[in-house]
Amino acid sequence: MTLIDFLGFSGAFLIGIILGLMGGGGSILTVPLLVYLLSYNPVVATAYSLFVVGMSSVVGIIQKHQEKLVDFKTGLAFSFPSFLAVYMSRRYVVPNIPDEIFSLNGFVLTKEMAIMVFFAIIMLLAAISMIKRKPKFDGPFKKQAYYKTFVQALVIGTITGLIGAGGGFLYVPALVLWAGLNMKNAVGTSLVIIAINSIIGFLGDLHTLDIDWEFLLSFTFLTILGILLGGYLSKYISNKKLKKGFGWFVMVMAIYIMIKEFS
């Protein structure tokens, strides 16, 4: 095992710890780790990330279900349009993005560059959502018409499919504002959507990519071990302070990706 491989697998374990500590967020580092440290193509990296996120979310569902914080009915209802969008984007949209999107005065926007820049933008949004103080959503809720939720889930699913991240920072507020769940139940329920979306999105990639199963399963196994350790440590560490600090770290990473891609 080379030093790079060691650092990569150590990163997988660290991502798992972050996921276990905060219930989300760590998966957004999987793609940069695979691309910049382990030198995977962004398309392959987003596919691998979907698998890691999907398997990790299943572990999270088990943990949250034991705490009675998962609304399976709402999660499955929201999942249907979302996983359709994830699968279609991975199966048809990503493979058909041209390798060279456009060029202007010597600047060439490639497919790989576009994916990473879009990913960095989503990272920035995620960082802001973790840093800022979230409003309390207490009081009566009125569920919106399902067709609106259907369209919104299609949009979120498409974004999730393109960037290969879990999208919890998008699904949690959606479940609070549109389905009327409280924050804790929204976090637990979002894992159902994330797990289904990620696994089905990955299935879309099986038609177009050759998967290194030995690496992927090893990487995922270490991430899950990290989740179990993080879940244990979460009893002793302030989730609020940790999430804010991690938000700043994600913001720095997003800026780094932007600089690296445009330099």
Score class of each variant (00 low, 15 high):
Ile4His: 12
Ile4Asp: 15
Ile4Val: 15
Asp5Pro: 10
Asp5Gly: 08
Asp5Ser: 15
Phe6Lys: 13
Leu7Ala: 15
Gly8Glu: 10
Gly8Val: 08
Leu14Asn: 12
Met22Ile: 14
Gly23Phe: 11
Gly23Trp: 09
Gly26Asn: 04
Ser27Phe: 02
Leu29Gly: 01
Leu29Asp: 00
Thr30Asn: 12
Val31Ser: 03
Val31Met: 06
Val35Phe: 00
Val35Thr: 04
Tyr36Cys: 02
Tyr36Ala: 01
Ser39Cys: 05
Pro42Thr: 01
Val43Gly: 01
Ser49Pro: 03
Leu50Tyr: 00
Val52Ser: 10
Ser56Trp: 07
Ser56Gln: 08
Gly60His: 09
Ile61Ala: 04
Lys64His: 14
Gln66Pro: 06
Glu67Pro: 03
Glu67Leu: 11
Glu67Thr: 05
Leu69Phe: 10
Asp71Glu: 11
Phe78Pro: 06
Phe80Ala: 13
Ser82Ile: 02
Ser82Leu: 06
Ser82Pro: 04
Ser82Arg: 00
Phe83Trp: 13
Ala85Asn: 03
Val86Gln: 08
Tyr87Ala: 09
Tyr87Val: 11
Ser89Lys: 06
Arg90Gly: 00
Arg90Asn: 07
Arg91Cys: 10
Tyr92Thr: 08
Val93Glu: 11
Val93Ser: 12
Val93Met: 14
Val94Arg: 09
Pro95Ile: 01
Pro95Lys: 03
Ser103Cys: 03
Leu104Gln: 06
Asn105Leu: 13
Asn105Asp: 11
Phe107Ser: 07
Val108Thr: 11
Thr110Gly: 10
Met113Arg: 12
Met116Thr: 02
Val117Leu: 15
Phe119His: 02
Phe119Gly: 01
Ile121Ser: 03
Leu124Cys: 12
Leu125Pro: 00
Ala127Gln: 09
Ile128Leu: 13
Ile128His: 12
Ser129Leu: 08
Ile131Phe: 07
Ile131Asp: 05
Lys132Cys: 07
Lys132Asp: 10
Arg133Tyr: 13
Arg133Lys: 14
Lys136Gly: 10
Phe137Asn: 13
Asp138Ile: 12
Pro140His: 14
Phe141Gln: 11
Lys143Phe: 10
Gln144Thr: 14
Ala145Ser: 14
Tyr147Cys: 12
Thr149Trp: 11
Leu154Asn: 08
Ile156Asp: 01
Thr160Val: 15
Leu162Ser: 07
Leu162Ala: 11
Leu162Arg: 08
Gly164Cys: 06
Ala165Arg: 08
Gly166Met: 00
Gly168Pro: 04
Phe169His: 01
Leu170Met: 12
Ala174Phe: 15
Leu175Met: 10
Trp178Thr: 14
Ala179Ile: 06
Ala179Gln: 07
Lys184Gly: 06
Lys184Tyr: 09
Ala186Arg: 07
Ala186Cys: 04
Gly188Val: 01
Ser190Asp: 07
Ile194Met: 05
Ile196Asp: 02
Ile196Asn: 02
Asn197Ser: 00
Gly204Gln: 00
Gly204Glu: 00
Leu206Met: 05
Asp210Ala: 10
Asp210Trp: 08
Asp210Ile: 09
Asp210Pro: 02
Phe215Lys: 00
Leu217Thr: 13
Phe221Ile: 07
Gly226Lys: 05
Leu229Glu: 09
Gly230Trp: 09
Gly230Asp: 08
Gly231Met: 05
Ser234Lys: 13
Lys235Phe: 12
Tyr236Thr: 09
Ile237Ala: 02
Lys240Ile: 15
Lys240Ala: 14
Lys240Asn: 11
Lys241Val: 13
Leu242Gly: 09
Phe246Ile: 06
Val250Ile: 15
Val250Ala: 03
Val252Leu: 15
Val252Phe: 15
Ile257Pro: 01
Phe262Leu: 13
Phe262Arg: 04
